[in-house]
């Protein structure tokens, strides 16, 4: 079986063709680099996405955050719920975690910029 997939790892956005056998990835075509193949493998077994958003700070400001790595795709909305229920202390800087080990994924939600 073939499956078409656009790689999202970098802005190049390679159009890849995945060759599958019983859901298992046999080979990949169209990827310009090995990261494409890894992405294709993940997409076939356990797709992952990074989440970016903002959190509210104690003083009522907004601070941009992201997941420090991609999390399972099906947890994206649950992760948004976590992000939207947290109040970050004031004074955090880039890289500081606002939520540690979000949803037991081993991934932190970390600050990416100044509070506005």
């Amino acid at each position: 079986m073939e499956r078409k997939l656009t790689c999202i790892i970098c802005p190049r956005g390679c159009d890849m063709t995945l060759y599958l056998d019983d859901g298992k990835l046999i080979s990949v075509d169209g990827n310009a680099c090995p990261r494409g193949k890894t992405y294709a493998e993940d997409e076939c077994t356990h797709p992952k996405r990074s989440v970016t958003s903002t959190v509210r700070t104690e003083s009522g400001r907004l601070q941009p955050v992201k997941t420090s790595a991609a999390i399972p795709k099906e947890l994206v909305f649950a992760c948004m719920d976590e992000i939207n229920s947290v109040v970050a202390p004031d004074g955090l800087s880039i890289g500081d975690a606002v939520i540690s080990d979000v949803l037991g994924t081993g991934v932190d939600v970390v600050v990416t910029g100044k509070a506005i």
Partner: peptide, 22 residues
């Protein structure tokens, strides 16, 4: 631009807009 996708060429890693600017 709090989303990711910045900096792959410049820094070799994917950053969000505020991180890139910072």
């Amino acid at each position: 631009c709090i989303h990711g996708g910045f900096g792959l060429h410049t820094f070799g890693e994917e950053l969000t807009g505020p991180e890139y600017a910072a």
